[in-house]
């Protein structure tokens, strides 16, 4: 991929993407290319700029500098169009606690433009697939962490987006629920959905096809899990992460 034009199949393509908050540089000159259909992991310690990167890609924040294309569209000029084609699950899930499971799903599905019979069919399928059929009438606020996470994913994918952004989707969720969640992720990927996921869990990082490591807003490593571990001369991703965190704190001190 050396040509000047971005690869047509790239789901995400950023060039010199930058975001500053006052004097703080949250994301610094990020060049990233994610081919379609890939499960891509964005890793890094707290405050390294993962959420900020995702927010710029989803059109939630204006980049200070640089360009970004998502599903082939410019985030600066085509934000609204991008929104119809992506799904986003924020760190805080964004569920309405005072709506039931069914109502949350129906709301997001309708806002994403599903109507009538198509919506009904899609929701039924969706609820069944995710095992929600019996919990339709339960208030979202009373769900456990794992179910909330799954409902949030259901809401973010009701419209079958081409590209899915997941910001720390499994934070605070028990291992069994995490495993189920990843099964769903893989199923989505098999259907051709591109997935950008940030995580803290190293076993999850190993499940990604490609990884990018962020440290203090900089991209410091990129490649398959094996490539990245080799690059840092460590035994596994977890060691890479600990090494990075050590360096990070070294710079700060």
């Amino acid at each position: 991929m050396t040509g000047p034009s971005p690869a047509p199949q790239a789901a995400v393509e950023t060039v010199g993407l930058r975001k500053t908050f006052g004097s703080l540089v949250a994301v610094d000159r990020l060049d990233l290319s994610i081919p379609r259909g890939q499960v891509f992991g964005l890793l890094g310690p707290n405050g390294s700029g993962k959420t900020t990167t995702i927010r710029m890609l989803c059109g939630l924040m204006q980049p200070t500098d640089g360009t970004a294309r998502v599903v082939g569209l410019d985030v600066h000029t085509d934000a609204e169009l991008i929104r119809t084609r992506i799904g986003y699950m924020s760190q805080r899930y964004g569920l309405y606690d005072d709506l039931t499971v069914g109502e949350n799903l129906r709301f997001y599905a309708t806002v994403y433009g599903l109507h009538g019979a198509e919506r009904t069919q899609r929701l039924t399928e969706h609820l069944e697939e995710l095992g929600f059929t019996e919990r339709m009438g339960q208030m979202a606020g009373t769900l456990s962490g794992g179910w909330k996470q799954r409902l949030a994913l259901a809401c973010a994918t009701a419209h079958r987006p081409e590209m899915l952004f997941l910001d720390e989707p499994t934070a605070g969720v028990d291992p069994a629920a995490r495993r189920t969640f990843w099964q769903i992720i893989y199923r989505l990927a098999e259907r051709g959905t591109t997935i950008l996921v940030t995580t803290h869990y190293m076993d999850e990082a190993e499940r990604c096809q490609r990884l990018a490591f962020l440290s203090r807003g900089h991209l410091i490593a990129l490649g398959t899990p094996t490539e990245v571990t080799q690059q840092f001369g460590q035994a596994n991703i977890e060691d890479v992460f600990i090494e990075l965190q050590r360096r990070d704190e070294g710079v700060r001190a």
């Binding site: 939630l60 929104r83 986003y88 924020s90 805080r92 899930y93 964004g94 569920l95 806002v111």
Partner: peptide, 13 residues
Amino acid sequence: ERGTLEQLIVTPI
């Protein structure tokens, strides 16, 4: 404050 606005504004509404 509840974090739902962020979710709402990534939708095409």
